[in-house]
Amino acid sequence: MKHVVTGAGSGIGHALARRLTDRGDELVLLARNQARGADLGRTFPQAQVLVADLGDPGTLNGLGREVDGGVDTLVHVAGVVDLSPVSSLRLAQWEEQLTVNLTAPAVLTRELLPHLRAARGTVVFVNSSAGLTANARWSAYAASKFGLRALADALRAEEAEHGVRVSTVYPSRTATPMQVKVHEQEGRDYDASQWISVDTLVETIVHVIDLPADATIPDVTVRPGA
């Protein structure tokens, strides 16, 4: 199988890329610059690494021409978060989160749709519980994730006739470097044991990826067990 994965530099994306590599699958990974691309290339020497900055979606234009053959799965994992109340939310904070979390996935999906159609593949959006409920200080991030949910729903309706499945995974707080940053912004102590492990979430994503062709999982929510 061939998978295109964003966010493979750390956290969920890194763990997913490692899991797929270990079982012998083919990977195409995105890096935002040449230096990050070199790092990913050393970590995943068998992968094809493409340089494109999700913070500048124009760099994704034409990316589909750099990928050969069908794509079985496109997994959108990369994302950014920057908490702020609306009263002090800066334009740059708003724009960055909407750009990376929503606009870039839309452009990348468009670029790879011919490859996904050829393989009758699956698009997986790793969203967030913030894509279902917006809490105080989470307005920009939640807006980007609510938008990502809408993108997935529309794409699912459009691509069913082409055999492309679309799934959204909504994880609650997961023990990742992003979660460390969130706790710092919230002024809270971080305890990874309180949250979903990365490996558990990766197994959920792999289950969606490996689902037989006679079924689809449109949405799955993952919450801490305690």
Rank of each mutant, 00 (worst) to 15 (best):
L30H: 06
L113S: 08
D214T: 08
Q194I: 09
R65T: 07
S84L: 12
S193N: 07
A192G: 14
L30A: 04
T133N: 11
S167I: 12
T103Y: 04
L40H: 03
R173G: 14
P114L: 13
L155S: 10
A213L: 10
F125Y: 13
F44R: 10
D210P: 11
V182G: 10
E158T: 11
D191C: 09
T176N: 06
L91I: 15
G37V: 09
D82P: 04
T122C: 15
K2W: 02
S193Y: 05
E66M: 10
L112C: 07
I196D: 01
L102M: 10
T204Q: 11
R120L: 03
N135P: 04
R165K: 10
Q34D: 06
S197L: 02
V206R: 10
P218S: 09
N101Q: 12
E66G: 06
V100D: 13
N135G: 15
Y170E: 07
R65I: 03
G13L: 00
S129Y: 00
G9N: 14
V180Y: 07
V75D: 01
L30N: 05
V49P: 01
E111A: 06
V166I: 10
H115G: 13
I217R: 02
G7C: 04
K2Y: 03
I209K: 04
V81K: 00
L63Q: 12
L102D: 01
D210F: 08
Q93W: 05
L132Y: 00
V202R: 03
E161Q: 12
S88T: 15
G187A: 11
D199G: 07
V222W: 07
L60D: 08
N127Y: 00
S144R: 00
L16Y: 02
L54S: 13
I12A: 00
T43C: 03
L211D: 02
T168K: 01
L132C: 09
F146E: 08
R23S: 15
A175V: 01
S10K: 13
A92Q: 11
R32N: 05
T99D: 03
A52H: 03
G147P: 00
Y141I: 01
L155V: 10
S87D: 15
W94R: 06
N61Y: 09
